[in-house]
C-alpha cells in the first residue's frame, strides 16, 4: 500500500484546511476552483504523463459535461443526476469514436488534432445559440442535492469537489499500479517495444483517452452546478493549454505533481492581480523560467532538491 501514503496525506490536508481556516476565501472559493482544476489535471496527466499522449483538447470534454448538465436541467427540467450521467455517456461516445483515429497520430500531429477537436466543440457551443445560449452562456442551473442535502454553500461545494478529487486520485493511483498501469508506462517508453511485448497499444491508448475524457466530463457537470452558469469561454482552447501547463509545470507522470501544478496555476493569478498591468508579463516570465530551470516539473525538481539537502545533512551528521 506504499503507493497510497501520499494519498492519505492529501486526505488529511483536504480535511484540515477548512477546519484551520473556516470560511476563508482562499480555501472555499479559490480552493474549490483549484480542486476542480486538479481533477482535470490528474485526468489529463493519466493520458499525457503515463500514456505519453499529448492532448490540447481536454477543455472540450469538460465542456461537453458542463453543457449536458446545463442544457438538460434548465431547458428540459431533468434532475441533475441523470443529466450528469447523460453527459458522461455522450462524452464516452465522442471520445471513443474519435479516440481511435486521433490516437494513431503522433507528437505534434496529435497535439494539433486534439487542439482542433477542442476548438470544434467550442465553435459548436458558440454557434448553436438556441440550445446553448451562445456566447452569452446559459444561467439558472440548479444546484445539486444528495438525499435532501442541498449543495448550496461554498463549504459544501468544497466538500463535494474535494471528495471527488480524492476519489479520482485514488482511482488513478490504483490504475497506475495495476497491470494496465504497467502497460501504459511501457507505452510511454516505446510504443513499438510495448507492442512487441503483446500490449494492444491502440486499445490501451483509447481506453485511457476515454477514461480521461469521462473524468473531465464529470468535472464539467460539477462545474456547471457549482457556478450555476456556463459560457463557451470557460471551455476554450486557452483553457486546454492551461491544463497542459498545469500538468507539465507540476511534473509529468506524477499525480501529485499534476495536483501541485493545478494549485499553483490557480493561485498564481490571484496573487498576481496586485501587479495590474504587469500581471501578464510576470506570469509569462514565471512560467518560462520554471520550465527552463526545472524542465521535469516542479515536483521532480523539488524531490531532487530535497534529496540533495537530505544527503548533505546526513554527511554533516556523519562528520
Amino acid at each position: 500500500m506504499s503507493h497510497l501514503r501520499g494519498f492519505y496525506l492529501l486526505v488529511a490536508a483536504a480535511l484540515l484546511l477548512p477546519l484551520i481556516f473556516p470560511d476563508n476565501y482562499y480555501v472555499t472559493v479559490v480552493g474549490v476552483t483549484a480542486a476542480l482544476h486538479a481533477i482535470l489535471a490528474v485526468s489529463l496527466n493519466l493520458l499525457m504523463g503515463y500514456a505519453g499522449q499529448i492532448s490540447l483538447g481536454h477543455a472540450g470534454f469538460f465542456g461537453i459535461g458542463a453543457y449536458a448538465s446545463a442544457i438538460l436541467t434548465t431547458r428540459y427540467g431533468w434532475n441533475p443526476w441523470p443529466a450528469m450521467l447523460f453527459g458522461l455517456v455522450l462524452t464516452g461516445v465522442v471520445a471513443f469514436t474519435l479516440g481511435r483515429p486521433i490516437l494513431r497520430l503522433k507528437g505534434h500531429y496529435l497535439a494539433m488534432a486534439t487542439l482542433g477537436l477542442g476548438i470544434i466543440i467550442n465553435i459548436l457551443l458558440v454557434q448553436t445559440g438556441s440550445l446553448t445560449g451562445g456566447p452569452d452562456g446559459l444561467g439558472g442551473i440548479p444546484t445539486l442535492s444528495l438525499f435532501g442535502w442541498a449543495v448550496d454553500s461554498d463549504l459544501r461545494w468544497y466538500t463535494v469537489i474535494v471528495s471527488v478529487l480524492l476519489a479520482v486520485v485514488w482511482l488513478v493511483l490504483n490504475i497506475i499500479n495495476s497491470r494496465s498501469g504497467r502497460a501504459l508506462r511501457a507505452l510511454h517508453g516505446s510504443e513499438v517495444a510495448a507492442e512487441m511485448m503483446g500490449i494492444n497499444t491502440t486499445t490501451t491508448k483509447t481506453g485511457v483517452f476515454v477514461l480521461a475524457a469521462l473524468i473531465a466530463s464529470l468535472a464539467g457537470s460539477l462545474f456547471a452546478h457549482q457556478q450555476a452558469f456556463v459560457s463557451p469561454d470557460s471551455f476554450s482552447f486557452f483553457f486546454s493549454i492551461e491544463l497542459v501547463t498545469m500538468v507539465v509545470l507540476g511534473g509529468m507522470a506524477s499525480t501529485y505533481g499534476a495536483i501541485m501544478g493545478a494549485i499553483i496555476l490557480t493561485f498564481l493569478p490571484e496573487l498576481l492581480v496586485v501587479f495590474e498591468d504587469f500581471e501578464v508579463l510576470i506570469f509569462g516570465a514565471i512560467l518560462m523560467s520554471m520550465m527552463i530551470f526545472l524542465p521535469q516539473g516542479l515536483f521532480v525538481g523539488m524531490q531532487k532538491l530535497w534529496r540533495r539537502v537530505a544527503t548533505e545533512e546526513s554527511r554533516r551528521g556523519a562528520a
Binding site: S2, R5, G6, L9, L10, A13, L17, F21, N24, Y25, Y26, V27, V30, Y256, M260, I263, I264, F267, E270, L271, F299, M302, Q303, W306
Partner: peptide, 23 residues
C-alpha cells in the same frame, strides 16, 4: 520520503496563498 515531499509540496502551495485576513 514520499510523505515528506508531499507534505512539503502541499504546505508550501497552501501557505503561500493563505495571506492576510479580511480587512
Amino acid at each position: 520520503m514520499n510523505i515528506r515531499k508531499t507534505a512539503c509540496a502541499l504546505a508550501i502551495g497552501t501557505l503561500l496563498s493563505l495571506g492576510a485576513g479580511q480587512s
